[in-house]
Computed example of a mutant assay.
Amino acid sequence: MKTTPYYILWALLALLALPMSAQTEPESSDSSATRHFVHQLMFDYRPGAILHTNDFLRGKNPEVRTMNHDMGYYLKYAFSAPEGSEQARIYHDTYQGIGIGWNEFNPQLGNPVSVFLLQGARIASLSNRLALNYEWNLGLTFGWKPYDEIDNPDNKLIGSRVTAYIGFDLYLRWIASRHVDLNFGLNVTHYSNGNTQFPNLGLNTAALRIGAAYYINRHSPRLLYRHEAMPPVSHDITYDLILYGAWHQRGYYMSDGEAYILPGTYAVAGFNFNPMYRFNHWLKAGLSLDG
């Protein structure tokens, strides 16, 4: 598994973005705009399966059988811009928040708990009440039964009790009433510690997303801003500076094929400087200087 210090970076950026968004009241020229953010509570049930990426999952384990079992339960809170605001008209149904989830895996993997940041939005309006949405999750997962030379020697997937958690959902959202949405779609998830501790082959899952959301401060029982003209775009250049840091273990293969892990951990640090041109409300692109 490639070392991925960007996990820490993404989490820090998302943590910074959440309070900034929450504290800014979007301006609006629409007299019907409210000044109240729309809040929602979501519950997701995720029956799924483990993707068989190595021999441990395909039967080389104490159960001597293919590992498939994955059952997840997720509770989330999110907020979005006030209805009628300029931000709501530009970024249709965009929401961001926090969540907690519990997964039941096979005994050699454990039943870990995930805490994460989330962000999602509408991709396309299919009718006045039906939309295609996406959502991503980024956080940490605790409570694994990791590799242990004596007690769990076959588990080469998870080498630490805490890993990064990365999830992506593509789902249909149906507005059942002013306060309730029903959601149905697909989820893919990756668990890994980014080589901060060996072994670290990582775990990948795929699942159904079956859920519901309860809304506070939502006034309309239908999708808004489906055919509205967008405010003008300022085609300017912005500059992003990103600093990141992490740690990882290193190893190499001996001439006889045996793997050797170097003792201790090694620091990783770097930066990205990105001038980017704003093409529209949703896309910026440009060059990146990395070090």
Rank of each mutant, 00 (worst) to 15 (best):
R226H: 15
A259R: 11
S80H: 03
L186G: 14
I175G: 11
I261R: 04
D154P: 01
A78W: 00
S21W: 00
N187R: 06
G110I: 01
R218Q: 08
A212E: 08
W102E: 09
Y73Q: 15
L289T: 14
Y95F: 11
S127P: 04
Q23C: 14
L75T: 04
L241Q: 13
E258M: 07
S220W: 03
V38L: 07
D181N: 15
N155C: 10
R250Q: 09
L138T: 11
W102F: 10
Y134S: 07
F198N: 05
P5G: 08
M254E: 13
L13R: 03
A285C: 02
V188A: 06
L201T: 08
A212M: 09
M276A: 15
F56Y: 04
D55M: 13
G194F: 00
Y225C: 04
V188W: 00
W136G: 15
D55L: 11
L223V: 05
D236F: 05
S80K: 05
S28C: 09
D169S: 06
Y134M: 08
R129G: 09
E149H: 04
P47M: 06
L18K: 05
F79W: 08
L12N: 06
N274E: 07
K60E: 15
S255Y: 01
L9E: 14
Y239N: 10
S234Q: 13
Y239V: 06
Y260W: 13
R222Q: 08
N155F: 02
R218G: 12
I100S: 10
